[in-house]
Structure formats: structure tokens, C-alpha cells
Design a protein around this nucleic acid. Structure first.
Lengths: 197, 197
DNA sequence: CCTCCTTTCTCGTAAGTTCCTCGTAAGTAA
DNA sequence: TTACTTACGAGGAACTTACGAGAAAGGAGG
């Protein structure tokens, strides 16, 4: 499944060329760039990598028509941003976020946290959270909850008088869910990810 | 079930090669790396370990097709715990921690944070951090630093008068590195991981 | 201590596969 | 035309697999 060193080098060249010049290279440029002396060699690589699923052509016979395919096998969809008291802001051309392979499971997705309502649990603005979609939760778990259409990330505390949703920030109030609120748990927090630099 | 020492050494070589280079070695490379002088020897080990269930091939006759069975291919070694002002407490039979594949690179490893000296950056006790081993850092980056044998995770601020290491917790002092301290940067923080439940 | 026996490990070599490279030439679009 | 992509076949380099002979290492019994 993993690439041979030479194929990896070929892909890496495509990537950096694309990055630097804003367009894919021609076969000739690849040949020179990698020190080959035949276009046949370039073509051989292109076909191989196409077969392996790392490459695609935007048009038949097109010039500069090579396109890299990002492997989405290791990623989960970033469904949107979640902020206290707002609906989940869907991200249109959904990005994909790489996560530890243990979380590559059905019913898992990623949200980006917006705001600081959970700062007491050291979940900060911009962090990514892996969520497992499910409707039940244990007391004390951190859940994505939907109240009257508004989504929020909070700690879940079922009580005799009704459900409480606790933020972890003194500036935000505890939310009391009354029986005539439209309330649903959407998922529970499984993992937090923060990328630096 | 238990391996002979030589077989263990063989497996260990595969593991570290994979970790450092991002791909499995060829038979030739194993031979040189372990100081053998025949490919037959390498082949003997491969067959034995395959029979014992520690190894598998991703393809028949494939090059660089060796794969360790308990796929640590998706993990980085957990080298130890890092606490403010203590040497890194090495974890002997090093565990492996799954990380997002983007961090599966040479020179990357994982530490577990112990203590709350960086709580202001919302890095809390028990969190895992992915570190890239390198000796340089930019101002303001969070680094693993070694001062007189003690390891610590701190923000790095080079000043005219010398280097400052800032904790993110008012209970801890800023560390001033003097020229006669034995000081080294060990690596920089690349990613933070927190697992729930 | 030594001797025999079994298991573990080593060597060299050669054949077999796959991966990669080349040169050349035909095809396609502006 | 010019600038590029696509196709084909031959061949060498890189790498794996197979085989047979035997050396080292460890344990049991004298």
C-alpha cells in the first residue's frame, strides 16, 4: 500500500512544484527536475500513480493536467464550527482533518471549537474535537447538544428536575433544559486536537 | 510466545527503521544494519518471525513489503513523562500512541505532560504532546528544553541578555538561562492530543 | 569438567520478480 | 509550426526467494 521511495519522490516533486508555481508541471519539466532522460519514464510514473490512486488527470491529453489526490483515508470530515449558543456553522466545501486512526470509525466527525465557554476544561478557541454521533450520554460527559436549533458544547448533567448543561467558564450560565425545550444530544466528545505553528 | 534475544533485536531494528525513515527496510539494508553478511540470514529471520506471527508481508515478492503485525505503523513512541523541573521520566517498555498521520515523520515522538505549569496555554496534566526533535526554535514557540539535565516544557524567548523560558502559570517562575548553564533545546511542540472517556 | 544432541542462527550463491529507465515515434491541441 | 501528451518494447538495476551446508549456543547426562 505504501509507496516506493522513487514514487514518493515523484509525488513530492509534483507537490512542491504546484506549491511554488501555482500550476502542475509539464512532463518535460518533471523529467528535467528529477534528472530523468526520457519522457517514457515520466509517463510510466504517471500511469502507475494514477493506478495507485494518488494522481488524476483533469483532462485527457490536456497540458499541465496532473492533479494530486489527497488521501482522505486517514481523515474525518470537518462538519463545522461550534460556538456557544449558535447553530453549528456548517463549512461548505468540507475540509478533512487528520485524526489518530483509532477514531476513524463510523459516526465520527470533527468540529472546530469557537469561543471559550469550555476554557475551564482547557478546550480553547480553535481546537478541533472528534465527536461520536450518539443520542445518549453519561453524566459528566462533554456533549454536543442541540437546544431549539442551537448547538453547543457542554458538560451533560441529568438531574431529577431536568437536564443541566454546564459550561466551564464563569462568564456563561448553566443551561436548564425545560421539558418543552426541543432538546437532543448530538454526540459526545472523544478526542481533542490542537495543531501548533 | 517469547522471542529469542536475536529475534527481538531483529524486530526492534524493523521498528526503528520504520520510525526513522517512514518505510520498511530492504533485506540488504537489514543485513548491513545488523552486521550480517548474507541475505539468507535475513530471509531466515523473516520466515521465522512470520511463522511466529510477528511479521507479515504486504505483497508477495514485494520490495520493502515487511510489516509489523501489531501495527505500530500508525503510532509514535511515547518516550516518557515531562514535568516541570524534572528529568524526563523515561517509560521503559515504551508504549506507542496513535497520532494524526501528518505527524508520522522521522524525528517525531510523544511525551505525556505531567503537572500544570503550562495551564495558561491550556495544556493540562495528562495531555499527550507530539514533539519534533530539533535544536532550534523560533521565539514564542513551545519547546522541550534541557537545563542542567532537567527537562521542561516551556515557551522559548531568546533575549539580548540571554534565553528566557516562560511557564504559563503564575505559580511558576520565569527561568533565566545563564551562559554557564548547560542548556539545550530538545524539540518543539507540534500537536496536542487529549483522549476522553 | 567434558560429550552428545537439539535448537538457533549464519553463510554464499543463484535464480526469480518487480521496479524503473531508456529511445523513439505517433498523437493532440493551439 | 510549436509545445505538449501518449504509446510501446527492450533491457538493466534493485530486490526477494530458494537451497544446502554448517557454525554457534544451550541443556542433559556422565
Amino acid at each position: 500500500m505504501s509507496l516506493t521511495p522513487k514514487k514518493a519522490r515523484f509525488l513530492e516533486f509534483l507537490r512542491s512544484y504546484q506549491q511554488e508555481r501555482g500550476m502542475p508541471p509539464t512532463f518535460q519539466e518533471i523529467m528535467n527536475g528529477l534528472g530523468m532522460s526520457s519522457l517514457g519514464t515520466v509517463n510510466w510514473y504517471v500511469q502507475e500513480l494514477e493506478k495507485d490512486g494518488y494522481l488524476r488527470r483533469t483532462q485527457e491529453n490536456g497540458k499541465r493536467a496532473l492533479e494530486l489526490i489527497d488521501s482522505k483515508a486517514e481523515s474525518l470530515p470537518l462538519l463545522g464550527k461550534i460556538a456557544a449558543g449558535l447553530p453549528i456553522e456548517a463549512i461548505p466545501n468540507s475540509e478533512w482533518i487528520e485524526v489518530p486512526p483509532a477514531y476513524l470509525l463510523p459516526d465520527h466527525y470533527v468540529l472546530q471549537v469557537s469561543g471559550n465557554s469550555m476554557i475551564g476544561d482547557h478546550i480553547q478557541d480553535g481546537d478541533y474535537v472528534v465527536i461520536r454521533q450518539q443520542e445518549q450520554a453519561e453524566a459528566g460527559e462533554t456533549v454536543v447538544a442541540l437546544i431549539n436549533g442551537e448547538a453547543t458544547l457542554k458538560r451533560y448533567y441529568p438531574k431529577a428536575e431536568g437536564i443541566e448543561l454546564h459550561p466551564r467558564n464563569p462568564d456563561y450560565p448553566v443551561i436548564q433544559v425545560s421539558p418543552n425545550d426541543d432538546f437532543r444530544i448530538q454526540g459526545v466528545l472523544r478526542c481533542l486536537l490542537r495543531n501548533f505553528e
